Amino acid sequence: MELNNRLLVMMRQNNRGRIIFNSSVLGLVALPFRGAYNASKYAIEGFADTLRLELDDTHIEVSLIEPGPVESKFRQNSLLALKENIDMENSVHRD
């Protein structure tokens, strides 16, 4: 948001620009056990949609990318963090 606030000054001076947000399909549909990730993506969606409405009378475009699964180590790293931080044996979600 801070970066957008700074760049919008220049974009308004130039009377043009494009802001691109990278979200996820999980900004549209929630999945269990991904609360923080889902919330962050919903926030990006809301911010982009609001900014698009606020800039409607300008030549500043707002784009939102919502990719599906991509190949990365996200799941592998998440599993390691889960094992380090969550007591699975005593979790209410164990079963």
Rank of each mutant, 00 (worst) to 15 (best):
L28Y: 04
S72C: 07
A30G: 10
S78N: 13
Q76F: 11
E2S: 09
H59G: 15
F74W: 10
P67E: 11
N4H: 03
D56M: 14
T50Y: 03
N15K: 13
S40D: 09
E2Y: 14
P32L: 05
R75E: 09
M1A: 13
D95G: 08
M10G: 01
E54P: 04
T58P: 03
L79T: 13
I19N: 04
V29Y: 02
S72H: 03
S63V: 13
M10P: 00
A48S: 15
L26V: 14
G35Y: 03
S63H: 13
K83A: 07
P67F: 07
V29K: 09
I20G: 01
L80H: 03
R94F: 09
V92I: 14
G46N: 10
L64R: 04
A81S: 13
G17W: 02
D95W: 07
L64G: 05
Q76R: 06
S23I: 11
I60F: 02
V9Q: 12
V92R: 13
E89H: 10
M11E: 03
R18L: 10
G27L: 14
M10Y: 10
R6K: 12
F21C: 08
N15P: 00
R6Y: 08
G27F: 14
D49T: 06
R6I: 13
V25K: 06
G35P: 00
N5K: 15
A30Y: 10
S63A: 15
A36F: 14
N77C: 05
L79P: 00
K73G: 04
V70D: 01
P69G: 14
V70A: 07
L26M: 09
Q76K: 07
Y37I: 11
A39C: 11
A30K: 15
M88E: 08
N14D: 03
L53V: 10
L64C: 09
N14Y: 04
N14C: 06
N15G: 00
R75P: 01
P67A: 09
L8A: 09
N77A: 10
S78R: 12
L82E: 15
R52H: 11
S72Q: 02
S40N: 09
S40A: 12
E2L: 15
R75L: 14
S40L: 02
E54C: 04
K83D: 10
R16K: 13
E84C: 06
S78W: 08
G35I: 11
Y42H: 15
P32M: 07
A48W: 01
V25C: 07
R12K: 13
A39I: 12
G17L: 02
L26Q: 11
K73Y: 04
K41R: 12
I20M: 01
L7H: 05
N85E: 11
N22W: 06
M10K: 11
P67D: 08
N22H: 09
L8Q: 02
F21S: 08
E66T: 15
K41P: 06
S24I: 05
M10I: 04
L7C: 13
N90E: 08
R18D: 01
F21M: 06
G68V: 05
L80V: 15
N14K: 10
